[in-house]
Design a binder for these strands. Sequence first.
RNA 1: GCCGGGGUGGCGGAAUGGCAGACGCACCUGACUCAAAAUCAGGCGCCCACAAGGUGUGCGGGUUCAAGUCCCGCCCCCGGCACCA
Length: 831
Amino acid sequence: MKYQPDIIEAKWQKIWEEKNSFHAEPDSGKEKFYLLEMFPYPSGNLHMGHVRNYSIGDVIARLKRMQGYNIMHPMGWDAFGLPAENAAIKYGQHPAKWTYSNIDNMRSQLKRLGYAYDWKREVATCHVKYYRWEQMFFLKMFELGLMYRKNAPQNWCPQCNTVLANEQVIDERCWRCKSLVEKKELTQWFARITRYAEELLQDLKLLEGHWPDRVVSMQHNWIGKSTGADIDFKLEDGSETITVFTTRPDTIFGVTFMTLAPEHPLVDKLIAGKPQAEAVRAFRRKVVNMNDIDRASDGLEKEGVFTGAYCINPITGGKVPVWVGNFVLMHYGTGAVMAVPSHDQRDFDFARKYGLEVIPVIQPEGQADLVGAEMTQASTEAGVLINSGNFNGMPNEQAKTAVIKWVEENNCGKAAVHWRLRDWNISRQRYWGAPIPVVYCDACGIVPEKEENLPVVLPLDVQTRPDGRSPLPDTPDFVNTVCPQCGGPARRETDTMDTFMESSWYFLRFADARNDQAPFDKELVKYWLPVDLYIGGVEHAILHLLYSRFYVKVLRDMGYVELDEPFRNLLTQGMVLKDGSKMSKSAGNIVDPTEMIAEYGADTVRLFCLFAAPPERDFDWSDAGIEGSFRFVSRVWRLVDELKGQIKAVPACSADAQDARVSSTAAELRLREHQTVKKATEDITRRYQFNTGIAAIMELVNELYTAKDELVGSEAGRNILSSAVSSVLTLLSPITPHLCEELWQSLGGREMLLHTAWPTYDEKALQRDEIEIVVQVNGKLRGRFKVPAQADRAEVEALALADESIKKHITGLTVRKVVVVPGKLVNVVAS
RNA sequence: GCCGGGGUGGCGGAAUGGCAGACGCACCUGACUCAAAAUCAGGCGCCCACAAGGUGUGCGGGUUCAAGUCCCGCCCCCGGCACCA
């Protein structure tokens, strides 16, 4: 019978759906396994990246089920967001309609691929039954001071007409549309993620070994902790104090000037009435008017101007001139730095340029004594303190603590930590998002909506605007409301929440997706969470994963969950490329999954996505490659089709050792079957290296082709074949489920492979009677021979030395040593 | 500059310190065929070739009986952070 993937795939998908095969319920008898792939944005159609992501997930879901886990494998839609609004403008369709019809289309595409999801748990974040709980979380966070309003310069995307979080600005450009981001002074809502900075950093340790190194490292960098001290320098006249942040308190005796950011609030006071005033103001104008990109660029020359003011080094009492410099950032640390040119390269360059003093204070061991006037660059090595009063002779690491202790005791500073991480701006000036549940009352000010008044429903009967701006401020029915506090007239907040607010907790909702009384039942979350394995693209390494970790910690502190971290293990899959670059409409190199499925069937597409490369690596889509996968699938089909009627479905690895004695072919096939189960189990279930696991199964299929004609002639041979074929189908079933179920059924398999246990091999079946030994002379391969498996060292050594080709290579030499690696190899060392 | 990952045939990629290149793609040969496709069987790093050899995992050293794998020093590529004090 011909292999017709479309027919058998439809058949099995219908059976799974009718039998409700993938529905999950808590089961105290089984260990749970929560497998999750990052849910898609309903853009319209699945792309190959989705297919890869979800195929990897599906294989794991199916094999974990076979291994006896109670598996939850849900799917949903990250359904709020800008593209829906853009599409509305382009096609004149309401964002809701566009979104829901995309969801319908993509849901049927996922079903066509045969993915084993529990569709009863499906969520769409744009549904009011979902986002009402997010609004509730917002109110709880507001109560705790974790949501606050602040006026500050924000990242503004002129294309998207909205602000962006810092995490959404990549190389000064919008993460979505790549427009250059502008700075705009705005009052916005912020989530106080910085309150959790320390814990977000510390808990990365829990993830090490479970998350890819690079993701942990990226989060580490993003959070950006630096430890040191805030130290107070009083002005000469004692009227003001400038606090600097330094990570090098050990160099404080080497401070020869101080540099302030031009925007530093004390600058005006410092220059008042001084001859330098106008020069400083001119310098400040110049620097402040530069855009961020130019100001941060590598090539920017370090420049500065003396303010005419002096401050006092608290530890030496020395006078320190105060400068302003274009390289000091107001938004980091305190906006003021103590300059130590002897041990910091920037300060050194600046000092040489403006003729400022250089005083070395750390002498590296074993190097010539440092002399300030003669140094050509800053010295950054460890050493002992010099020119440092009472601290002289102290190792500099120790001096860091000692200086901090000194400034603390003398009330002029303290140990301090500064972070790169900044609070998360969650306001978006967009329509298609969850409304922020807050009202503005002339009498009461900012008033959070009452919990019993939730949800604040996003009105659907609005006309989206051609310029893309949100229609909400122009929707009186929405804007005009009453103050929850005083009952007077009030206006609603018209900003909506960043869509990352939805995706930061959807994995919790899946535990109890249909709950109308609460965001989720605490016990159900306790049962299913954490996510045991999370799979998705590395592009979310910071944004989504950091926000979700934050959210879970907040919900834990509120008592909703008992988790510290949401995702126990993380697998980041690589991209699917075509001709070396990312698939995109503009590059015209898109491979449409639907077309591929139509041509080869879902099983082949799934197989190829897994076989082409290990999951973490990018791979280049190859038309010849998928052709090869189809060839293999067809080869399995033909093998079983040919043997049908002569072999039958039996448990994997069930052939008796007795039957294997019928011939060397039978013995070899049985051995290879057990080896394959071992290798495939290791690769597929433990390492998630599907490519090598599949390769092992291919080898067994090749072996079956070699052996079948001989073995099919005897009963014992047929038993051996039945077992080996059954092993192939069982091992392959998570990867190409339709094919395997169909063939299994055709061999009389009663229960679906879906409910069959993952195979186990027999250690005894891996033993050979005779093993091949490789012989080297001085590490070079020179021969090989076979010995009985139980041969001892002496026998093996004697046989090796008697080997003709070995003799040839050692004539005229003296054998110095013979290394025997039992069961493997002999190395004859001769000279 | 700091942090993380990587560099192996024509290509995708394999190798608990023990036969480098599994498996697949491409290519070549044979069988089947009037022929082609499909299929089946076999070959396939490079040099030299009848063979025997030699050589080979970015570069240079080292450890070891034995190194793609471990150690030291470089080069290059990818990702993150970065005038971060």
